[in-house]
């Protein structure tokens, strides 16, 4: 009886301001989608970052016959004795975790494998174009990078020292910027959604002031008077959320996952990550709509 009555009231309310309800659902859907995309971005960046964390941290490229730097031109390609000395310097440093020598042949093989999906690019590079190098892992990359790098920079046989993180940093910056833009737009839209909820509920309360007036008069409890309005806001929020779930699944499977194919690393977010984002979006949507409805009602349905 009670449930049927409340459901009936909700239906009447939603139908009566159909245009407002539709606007509310659309705005909630879009803002939650953007919020979700922002969160997926964060997760993607984190996943990519942790993937790289365990990889190379410092690459010391050695001089070869093709090296163009002044230093290499003067001294010629690195010799076995130079390589040995560099390796000794590195391994003797307490900050270094491991040192691996990668010969030109190994480097070429790895290059061919990483760009196997782009044979035309591979064909432009010959073995010997890629210099041999030392791949160094540091115990504490943040603190010790400078010390280790300066100890080998300028040594004979060394072409250049490259911090792999500095290459990735640009990529992260790009991703981070995109994420921030998406989150800012999402927050603005969430504010708009909040105002729309307040307005919808106010209109709904106004169009049913006759009913609520009588309910008050005959002694209906506040809870009973407010519940239909509260649920009205929450249901609109849930419908908006359901739409955003569809959009988020599309964004993940059609865009983020496809994007991965263009990179050599495959860090595809799991379904669990998506579910986490979707649940978070639901909490935000329901809380936002519910709390706003509640606060609006306190103002417009005074006892």
């Amino acid at each position: 009886m009670r449930a049927q009555f409340v459901l009936q009231e909700i239906w009447i309310g939603l139908r009566r301001n159909l245009t407002m309800t539709v606007a509310l659902i659309v705005v909630v859907a879009i803002s939650l989608s953007l919020l979700g995309v922002g969160l997926l971005f964060v997760k993607q960046v984190d996943a990519t970052r942790s993937y790289w964390q365990g990889k190379v941290e410092l690459s010391i490229y050695l001089c070869t016959a093709q090296s163009v730097s002044v230093q290499c031109k003067q001294n010629g390609p690195s010799t076995a004795a130079q390589r040995q000395q560099i390796q000794q310097t590195l391994t003797s440093m307490p900050q270094v975790a491991s040192v691996v020598y990668q010969s030109q042949q190994q480097a070429y093989q790895q290059f061919k494998q990483e760009f196997s999906n782009n044979p035309s690019f591979v064909s432009t590079v010959a073995q010997g174009d890629i210099p041999d190098s030392f791949q160094v892992k540091l115990k504490n990359p943040q603190a010790d990078y400078g010390t280790v790098a300066s100890s080998v920079t300028g040594k004979s046989g060394v072409d250049s020292v490259i911090d792999d993180r500095s290459i990735l940093a640009k990529f992260y910056k790009l991703l981070g910027g995109a994420r921030n833009a998406v989150v800012i737009v999402a927050v603005i839209l969430l504010v708009a959604a909040t105002l729309l909820v307040a307005n919808t509920i106010r209109l709904s309360a106004f169009s049913r002031r006759r009913e609520t007036g009588i309910m008050r008069l005959v002694g209906a409890s506040n809870f009973y008077i407010q519940l239909p309005f509260l649920l009205e806001g929450i249901i609109a929020g849930l419908i908006g959320w359901a739409i955003s779930v569809g959009l988020l699944i599309a964004v993940k499977s059609l865009w983020l996952d496809t994007l991965q194919q263009y990179f050599t690393f495959n860090v595809i977010l799991s379904a669990g990550d998506l579910v986490e984002v979707v649940i978070l979006a639901m909490c935000v949507g329901v809380l936002l709509c519910g709390a706003t409805s509640f606060l609006t009602l306190r103002r417009y349905l005074r006892v």
């Binding site: 009886m1 009555f5 006759r210 009913e211 009588i214 005959v218 009973y224």
Partner: peptide
């Protein structure tokens, strides 16, 4: 102060419905 979209019976019953 009757509800225009409810008939006589529903108007009277409304007072009892809303107090459960």
């Amino acid at each position: 102060r009757l509800l225009p979209n409810k008939n006589v019976y529903q108007n009277v019953a409304f007072a009892l419905e809303v107090i459960g």
